[in-house]
Amino acid sequence: MALDSVTLQVKPRGKPIKRLPKEAYLSSSSTTEELYKKLSGAAGCSIYRLRVTNASDGSFIPNSKDTTIEAAGCKDGGVVNVKDLGPQIDWRTVFVIEYAGPLIIHPLIFYIAYPYIYPHTSSFSISSLLPSSSHRPPPPSSLQHLSMVLVLLHFVKRELETLFVHKFSSATMPVFNIFKNSGHYWGLSGLVLAYFTCAPFARISTPNLEASPVNNVFTYFGLLLFVLGELLNFNTHLSLSSLRPRDNPTKRAVPKGLGFDWVTCPNYLFEVLAWVGIWMVNRNWSTGLFLLVAIVQMFFWAKKKERRLRKEFPGEYKKKRYTIVPGLF
């Protein structure tokens, strides 16, 4: 064989992979993408189901057209472990499904299920479940309707960004994860948020727009925060998308633009700003709960991104003390 040829010993990690070859023959200048294609072709499965690592140190070998076998630490006679990640689903499809939850549930509760799930009666009976005039609850207030519109606008924006703006470094994710990920959006920002912000008893904290001048100031400031947060969030997503070539979205670069000098993830900062605006409009505990859970999750994502950026661009990336909100976390 050629002097620069590399023979890799291939071993499955975890459950056995049918037809996985015991050896892979490449050249040191071959890309890791070629390695993945050889392994997936021989095993007869999608290239995205496989995760390849170096057996010597456990380092991940990416599926990349820009990384050579040699650069990935694969040497002649070395051993690579191959793990079957199971059935996969496209990341773009995942986000579309996740964000569809609130877009379906909020109008469903406000306009269809409302008289059935909020029976206005002092005692329970079968007749109380029917939307008759005697049992029909009072209609949602103007602020409750406004809150729903803001939530819908937020998730419509997310859907459009998913379809036309975002570029994903990973093509797929395990199918099972879609149920776990969708729980946050279909459950918390969908069912819980819609049910408690639309409820007749929520009118105590969410009156009509005309309730008082103080109420109006609070509401209009919330609207201002929402619009500002959504526009700045969209601008950040455009900046992040521009860093990745469309023909090679796995390629990374140092994020730049408005907010990146303040925190690691300004898109998360502006997301928080928009949801604070929604909370100022509906003043409901369910919105606060969703925001709190989202902040915790985004904090862990942001810390992970900060570590990755420091590792990948040690001389170019400017380290950040705060990942989401300047002065806090």
Rank of each mutant, 00 (worst) to 15 (best):
V156W: 03
S128D: 12
S46C: 05
R13M: 15
W275F: 09
G77S: 05
N284K: 00
K37A: 09
G229D: 10
R13E: 15
E312N: 10
K305E: 13
L39G: 11
F168I: 03
E230K: 06
P119Y: 07
N267F: 03
A71P: 10
F176M: 13
A171Q: 10
K251M: 13
P174C: 10
Y114S: 13
A211V: 10
T206S: 04
R321I: 13
G315H: 03
A253W: 04
A43L: 06
I17C: 09
L191H: 04
L225Q: 00
T264N: 12
F176V: 15
V165D: 03
I126G: 14
A55K: 08
R244Y: 05
F164G: 01
V293M: 10
L232Y: 11
K320S: 09
T32K: 05
F226L: 08
L328C: 15
V6F: 01
Y25K: 09
H237E: 07
K304F: 12
E161T: 05
Y185C: 09
A202V: 05
E316K: 10
C265G: 00
F201V: 06
N177R: 14
L50Y: 02
Y317I: 09
P174R: 10
S46H: 04
N208F: 10
A302V: 02
S40E: 02
Q297T: 14
D247M: 00
L146G: 13
C265Q: 07
Q9H: 14
T264R: 07
V52Y: 13
L289C: 13
M173Y: 04
P266Q: 00
Y322T: 06
F234T: 11
F110L: 08
A253V: 04
K75D: 15
G315A: 09
S142T: 12
W279Y: 06
R244C: 10
N282Q: 02
K157G: 07
R13K: 15
T32P: 13
G78Y: 12
